[in-house]
């Protein structure tokens, strides 16, 4: 499984803006909670455990520690 290079453009700005709007007015704690819910919803939507494991590994690889 390979991560898609780019499936967002040319609507990347619309998405990013909608994401920021979703956080509008939330406290930092509530924003983190929203992010957690969003990840769970997206995981269900993707629905493929191999893909999800790949994404988790990739995201983790960028961590500083």
């Amino acid at each position: 499984m390979k991560i898609f290079p780019d499936r967002l453009s040319p609507q990347q700005d619309d998405f990013y803006n909608a994401l920021m709007d979703a956080h509008e007015g939330l406290s930092e704690t509530d924003s983190h909670a929203l992010n957690a819910r969003l990840i769970l919803l997206m995981a269900n939507q993707i629905g493929d455990l191999d893909v999800l494991r790949d994404l988790l590994t990739t995201a983790r690889a960028y961590a500083d520690v």
């Binding site: 991560i3 898609f4 290079p5 780019d6 499936r7 967002l8 453009s9 990347q12 700005d13 990013y16």
Partner: peptide, 9 residues
């Protein structure tokens, strides 16, 4: 990640 590059604005 190419998709993330295009997010940079």
């Amino acid at each position: 990640q190419p998709f993330a590059r295009r997010i940079l604005n």
